[in-house]
């Protein structure tokens, strides 16, 4: 790269060359579909969500309550020991105000999203979720929040059974 190299290869294409059909392309959309076995920990977690409850797993060696729950402790590398219900309140660890959707398309109403460290679980045990009922200039790190659940009959055993988190207003 050098000083000795005079020419670098690569031919740039513009968006226009493509939209004008000047470029030879082949198209293919893969048909890709999965059904992951949730396993022991996540199956129980999702079923508890349906009941409006949050559950974690405790490791008796490091005494941490892990949330979301898992059947093994990654620090001690041993099976976890017991199920422990935790609260649906917590503290905002961090957040973002997003103006793009999952496909990087612009959206008008921004999404408030962040990580909530849950009460009743060990330090930093958070999950990602949305926020609402709070203005984007009022949201703050360390703010206390509470889950807003879907109605029981609407719940399907998914993380989206919680609609979003709202400020506790303490």
């Amino acid at each position: 790269m050098t000083e000795n190299i005079k020419k670098f290869y690569g031919e740039e294409l513009s968006r226009k060359q493509i939209s004008d059909g000047k470029i030879t392309i082949v198209e293919h959309s893969p048909k890709v579909k999965y059904a992951w076995s949730c396993g022991e920990a996540m199956s129980r977690f999702l079923n508890e969500l349906k009941e409006g409850k949050l559950i974690g797993r405790k490791c008796n060696k490091c005494n941490r309550i892990l949330f979301p729950p898992r059947m093994f402790c990654e620090q001690c590398f041993k099976a976890t020991n017991e199920w422990v219900y935790i609260k649906d309140t917590g503290r905002i660890m961090t957040y973002s105000i997003s103006y793009v959707d999952t496909h990087a398309r612009r959206i008008k109403k921004p999404i408030l999203v962040g990580v909530i460290a849950m009460d009743g679980a060990s330090k930093n045990m958070g999950i990602m979720h949305y926020f609402d009922e709070v203005k984007s200039d009022k949201i703050k790190i360390d703010m206390r929040v509470k889950a807003v659940w879907k109605r029981k009959e609407e719940r399907e055993g998914a993380i989206t059974d919680i609609k979003y988190f709202k400020p506790l207003g303490e």
């Binding site: 999965y34 992951w36 949730c38 996540m42 977690f45 999702l46 979301p68 660890m93 961090t94 957040y95 973002s96 105000i97 997003s98 793009v100 959707d101 999952t102 496909h103 990087a104 999203v113 962040g114 990580v115 999950i127 990602m128 979720h129 949305y130 790190i141 998914a158 993380i159 989206t160």
Partner: peptide, 27 residues
Amino acid sequence: FAHIWDPIIDRPLKPNLMWIFAMEMNR
């Protein structure tokens, strides 16, 4: 990048890759 997320706890929220970086930057 939609497929880099955990299928059970993250993907149902339809995340964008930028979110995690935004959250890390904010922290």
